[in-house]
Amino acid sequence: MNKTLTVSPPKVRRKKRLNTEVLSYNLLMLPGMILLLIFAVLPMVGIVIAFQRFIPAKGIWGSEWVGLENFRLIFNLPDSWTVLRNTLALAVTKMVVGTVVPIFFALILNEIRCAPYKKFAQTAVYMPYFLSWVLLGSIFLSMLRTDGAINSLIKFFGGEPIMFMASNRWAPIIVVVTDCWKNFGYGSIIYLAALSGVNVNLYEAAAIDGANRLKQIWHVTLPAIAPTIVLVATLSLGNVLNAGFDQIYNMYNPLVYDSIDIIDTFVYRIGLVEMQYGLSTAVGLFKSVVSMVLIILSYWLARKWTGYRIF
């Protein structure tokens, strides 16, 4: 009798406790879910603005529906094609440079054997990542002015001063280089982590076989981080339409719209400066949909090729 009593009650209690546990987990999720519903889902409902001639005073329910009119208008604007071309060109160049430079830097940093210096170098190169484009834009624009540091240097060596940010030839180069400057250190972290996991015996074996350091890098180090490279490159695919709003907005000016105006800055200008809400939302929707498809594709590829899962 004693035995049956001790066996059955815990079963009942356990079931009850499980329920309160599930309930408490749901309660923990609730506040965040409410915020997401308001600040993430409601704006998605607001996308209907893209199909309206939206007038703020009339609101979403009172504005006139125009179907695909906004989209038709956009595709007929010559600016749209310039902006799309610039976005693709800048984003893809940034992706390539932003993949190659961090790998290269991780490889050379890995050859540094002096630990304190290596630590110092890492601290220095990660730092720009944490500074905002507002500050960096200000610093770079000041350095690139005709009376700035770069042109002083050019003049010192007897060259002609260059108006970098007034030239459609120079502006895209400046954008790619400064973006690389800000992000290459941070980008190298993941490769350095992969490098620290390489088996030391492999290097010893390679050395016995007569491989010098350069050959060891080529035949041991690079293959070891190849999966990481493939993974990072695949995941960056989702950024094909992200050419970097913060950077461009803080560095561009009307003289170089032809070469570095991008979708996001275009959306901002026609939307919040010219108050063409419907047009702006339509362009934004186009970008959101294409980006989402690309991100899903990139995660699918990453999972297929490297078995990566975010959760």
Partner: peptide, 18 residues
């Protein structure tokens, strides 16, 4: 739901109107 909100957003104007 969380991943969906990460992948897709309403964009600048709908957020502003909200």
């Amino acid at each position: 739901f969380l991943v969906f909100t990460m992948l897709f957003s309403g964009g600048m104007i709908p957020s502003y109107v909200l």
